[in-house]
Each structure stands twice: as C-alpha cells, then as structure tokens.
Amino acid sequence: MDDDGGRRGLSMGQIIDHAILDRDGHRAGRVDDLQFELEPGRSEGDPPRLVLRAIVSGPVPRPMPSLLGGIARACYRLIGVQDPRPAVVDWSHVKAIDAFVHLDVERVAAGLRRVDEAVLRYVGKLPGAGRE
C-alpha cells in the first residue's frame, strides 16, 4: 500500500553531505553532490523518470561563480592537487547507508583520496612522516 504518497524510500537528505567510507572502512571524503539522469517515460504519456546515477565527491564538486571557483582551484593546486576536480562514483558501488555512506570500492583507485594523496607526495618524503 503506497498510501503515504511515495514518502517511503530513501531521502536524499540522508545521503548528501554525509561522510564516505570505502570498502576497507577508510575515510573517503563526503557526498558533495548527487547526479540524476532525466529519462523520458517508458511509454507514451508516462511521466519522465529521474534516475539516481552517481555520487560526486572531491575538490570543487559543484559549479561555482568563475572567480570563486578559480580561487578554489588555485588553492587546491597550491597544496599539490594538479587537476582539481571531483570523483564521480557510480551509484551501484553504494553498499550500505547509515551515519556513513559505505562503498565497495577502494578509495585511492576510485579517486576519492586525491587531496590526501597529493599532499602525501611531498609530506610523506619528510623524515619522521611514518613514525609509529
């Protein structure tokens, strides 16, 4: 019975901005945006379908005014992120949702750790960076 008018289901507010954990339980950024695809109805007269496709996460995830976006990108380059753009992870990789969004991919391979990886390239070389 769908007498609640379609309220049952997954609220996007429960996902957007939440922290992401990868398949190993490591931190992998935040859900900065979600991508939807607008498909025409399956048959004549059907309403269009809005299909959830992907999670967007990482540097400069949303369109920004050009000046602000330029500043943001410059800041990312300054700390070593050469190509500051977000990762887009297909929705099929989402395995569970609680306080975190759990994925079944590895964070570096999925491009979800670009800032830490970029900083690591020079910070990791300093003596003492691997101390226990």
Partner: peptide
Amino acid sequence: VLDLIVAPDGEDMVVRALL
C-alpha cells in the same frame, strides 16, 4: 524542492517523490 525520495525501480533508483 527541499528533498527527494528515491526508491528502487527495477535495476535503478528512481525519484518517487518531491518534498
């Protein structure tokens, strides 16, 4: 639109309702 509610529809997750 404040929020979207999605639910599975076949293989896809499809928006069911607008809040």
